[in-house]
């Protein structure tokens, strides 16, 4: 045991540094109020955890995390943030106590359970002696490709991955249903007998609230007006192709 800890000493220092960065970034996400900063810090968090994945021998996972977590999801969050506010409102202290208590209790319960977990990097832990190591043996014999992760992903657990592909497909479908591929879902106005009933707004858009939402309403309704005027001129077929923004 002494020798193994000696042999991996530089990795421990790297691990500790990455863990410290992760904790600092996570805490600053809690403290910050600027959404732009929060979203960028989330990208930083993903990138640092990708670095830690490399240190933990999970090169495939690190690759994916760097591309997806730090790349695509940050872009998506920025795109969504541009459509919403740039700052979040402060939360009163009275509303923070209950979540803090829940989190502390749950965290203490999990800390209590740490004692039953195998040591970090233990080769004889239950997780590392079962089917996972079996896959390494079998891949070299049965599939003859070097990357065990690809072999398990596509062949041994191909069923799972098929499920994941379907989940991704349906998530894409859900986004297209909610927003539309050209960004025009949910912006069509009903026109019973040629009359437009805009603005097409759900619950909160009634007269009492409008004064409190001046700036938002002017933006939204001008966009809606533009859409409805331009669609009124076009034929019925073309109406669904209208992009709403232009």
């Amino acid at each position: 045991m002494m020798l193994s800890s000696y042999a991996v000493a530089p990795t421990i220092i790297l691990d500790l540094a990455l863990m410290a960065i992760l904790i600092i970034v996570a805490f600053s996400i809690v403290r910050m109020r600027s959404l732009f900063a929060i979203v960028m810090l989330q990208g930083v968090y993903s990138l640092v955890s990708a670095a830690w994945f490399v240190s933990l021998d999970a090169v495939d996972v690190a690759f994916t995390e760097a591309a997806v977590g730090a790349g695509v999801s940050t872009v998506l969050m920025l795109a969504a943030m541009l459509l919403a506010n740039r700052k979040s409102d402060p939360v009163p202290i009275s509303k923070q106590i209950a979540p803090l208590l829940v989190v502390i209790v749950a965290g203490l319960a999990m800390f209590y359970a740490i004692g039953d977990m195998p040591a970090f990097g233990d080769v004889n832990s239950p997780a590392n002696t079962g089917v996972g190591m079996d896959y390494i043996e079998r891949t070299t014999k049965e599939i003859h490709i070097p990357n065990v992760v690809t072999a398990v992903l596509a062949s041994y657990r191909g069923y799972d991955t098929f499920g994941e592909a379907v989940v991704i497909f349906s998530a894409g479908l859900g986004v297209l249903l909610l927003l539309g591929l050209n960004g025009n879902a949910g912006r069509w106005t009903a026109s019973p007998s040629g009359q437009h009933t805009y603005p097409p707004m759900a619950p909160s858009a009634n007269s009492r609230l409008r004064s409190s939402r001046d700036n938002i309403k002017s933006v939204t309704s001008s966009a809606v007006k533009k859409t409805s005027v331009s669609t009124a001129r076009k034929s019925k077929k073309k109406r669904f192709k209208d992009k709403g923004d232009n």
């Binding site: 795109a79 459509l83 986004v175 960004g183």
Partner: peptide, 25 residues
């Protein structure tokens, strides 16, 4: 199978980006 995953993931990611990007000026 990997080609299928490539095709699906690429187009879903692009679809999601198009959906968000078209939503705003």
């Amino acid at each position: 199978v990997e080609l299928g995953v490539l095709c699906s993931v690429t187009t879903v990611m692009i679809a999601i980006f198009y959906a968000f990007g078209s939503r705003q000026p």
